[in-house]
């Protein structure tokens, strides 16, 4: 009985919404023409399904967490330099421990962002673009999956194109809980993400409107531990280095994309679940 009670308590702790918040600096899966802002008046709708999991490192407690995220993104080229966007995700989490399950699901926090073109050069042989980004997580999400605080993201995106080769770089720093953190809650740790994506387009057919592009993303992500009264908490903070091969299929204004992200090395502080592979399938439509 005591053992069951202990497990329920442990499960409750680890499965709490604060245990694995959505990292805000984590560059968001599959290259997104990072530094190349869209044309004025262009609308881009994007939907993805992301399936990810975490496992107990030592498999002692048979503990795991499966998470399914369905983000919807709307992006608009307000001017040729300024891009505005928002992301609303559905978040389904299932925590399992020794056959017992705890589920949490609902709308995640609303994320709004702005990207501004500071540099763009287009020549016959190459294109380079650089755009800083400013975004904010607004704690509008469902009680079970919301971060319950305002998070700020500052980022820098750069893209290079030469012939059919593409290189995208996203660097993001997340100031978690810069506002709205309750006094009784620990101060969330900030995070830093670096995502580098290579792609090569292969035209399909003779229409010029279809291409297939293998993509390789290299991602490093690090989050600093949460703090309570200025003291670092034991079971928080991690670094993950991952590789993600993928494919992007473009038909005119429609893009279908998919990738699998494998952690290569990772280090979690204290008792935390280890990150597993992430599967992503997405669709993008431009208007």
């Amino acid at each position: 009985m005591k053992k069951h009670l202990l497990m329920v308590i442990l499960l409750g702790l680890v499965a709490s919404p604060f245990a694995y918040p959505c990292p805000i600096a984590f560059a968001g899966g599959i290259s997104v023409d990072a530094g190349l802002t869209p044309p004025e008046g262009r609308w881009i709708l994007r939907a993805q399904v992301r399936s990810m999991s975490r496992q107990d490192r030592d498999s002692i407690s048979d503990m795991s967490m499966d998470r399914l995220m369905v983000p919807f993104v709307v992006v608009h080229g307000a001017t040729s330099a300024l891009t505005l966007g928002l992301r609303q995700s559905l978040d389904f989490r299932t925590m399992t421990m020794n056959g017992m399950e705890k589920k949490a699901s609902g709308f995640a926090d609303l994320y709004i962002f702005a990207k501004y073109k500071v540099f763009r050069i287009n020549t016959r042989s190459y294109t380079i673009g650089i755009s800083p980004l400013l975004g904010v997580d607004i704690p509008t999400g469902s009680k079970e999956v919301s971060n319950h605080s305002w998070n700020l993201k500052v980022g820098l995106s750069a893209s290079g194109r030469s012939g059919k080769w593409a290189l995208d770089l996203n660097l993001g720093y997340g100031l978690r809980g810069f506002a709205g953190v309750a006094e009784t809650e620990p101060e969330p740790g900030n995070d830093l993400g670096l995502n580098l994506a290579f792609a090569r387009q292969f035209p399909v057919g003779s229409s010029g409107n279809v291409s297939l592009a293998p993509v390789l993303e290299i991602t490093w992500f690090g989050s600093s531990p949460d703090k309570s009264d200025g003291v670092e908490m034991l079971n928080s903070g991690e670094t993950i280095f991952s590789l993600a091969p993928g494919l992007k299929y473009t038909v005119d204004d429609l893009i279908i994309e998919g990738l699998v992200r494998f952690p290569v090395t990772q280090d979690q502080k204290g008792m935390q679940l280890e990150a597993g592979a992430m599967f992503l399938l997405g669709v993008r439509r431009m208007f």
């Binding site: 262009r42 287009n122 294109t127 291409s211």
Partner: peptide
């Protein structure tokens, strides 16, 4: 036109 790098690029230009 320089800077178009994918099959989906033309739409924004044609719209303008």
């Amino acid at each position: 036109v320089f800077g178009m790098d994918c099959p989906g690029c033309h739409g924004g230009l044609e719209k303008l």
